[in-house]
Amino acid sequence: MKRFTIVAASLLACLCLAGCARKEKTVPLTDEQNQVKTRLEGQMQAAAQTAQSYHAMDNSVLLGKLLEESKAQREPFNSLAYRELKTRSGVDSKALAALVKDNPNASGLLPLLLLRKLDNKSYLELPAELRAKVLTDALGSSKFFNTWGLPNFYLEDASNAMIEAGRSATPALKKMLSDTRPAPLFGSQEAMLSKQMKYRLCDYALFFLKRIGGTGDFRLPQTVEERDALVKTAQK
């Protein structure tokens, strides 16, 4: 009888302690919830391990990875090497500049942007024509435009670099005015807005040309027709 009382009291105490003072139902997770919970936890662990493995690499190895990821057109914020290197001091500016000079096209984008972030003086010492070549090549070969941001909403570092490159970028940008291929963004709200705005490569080119031309507060018109009219004028 005594034992029964102890067990009953334990059960009652357990029910209270198990968080059931709350008002919600206390049902265990379904198999489906458990399955995704396990997968998600495993992936979170894998992501942490990957970041740790990059953290353990020395600068020269990371610069090699950076170039690989640049050639693969990874966005700066999705390049593991870029993420790691931007947090470090002592990254060799000359090595970064050499990567840009050896890759004077879209492949040089990540080293170029990293140099701009870590050592702006050395970045500005690169010829403006070289910076413009890397940036315009990268813009022209973009499949998704997250690297550049979404004009009228936000600009990423690459867009600010393009505007800084100034008139050196103008000839290549003018050529892009006739390219009407879509310029989508991946993401959540980014993807929805880019779908809504229907920007094309020529719209990005127009935006940069206007900003470089001195219209610092230029905003792209909402409709394709209005933008087309401005593109026509800019082509003259």
Binding site: S10, G19, C20
Partner: peptide, 18 residues
Amino acid sequence: GLVALCAGLCFSVTACNP
């Protein structure tokens, strides 16, 4: 032992997972 078993069973069944 009986109390511990009950407690374990109780926790696995009633833990407020959601």
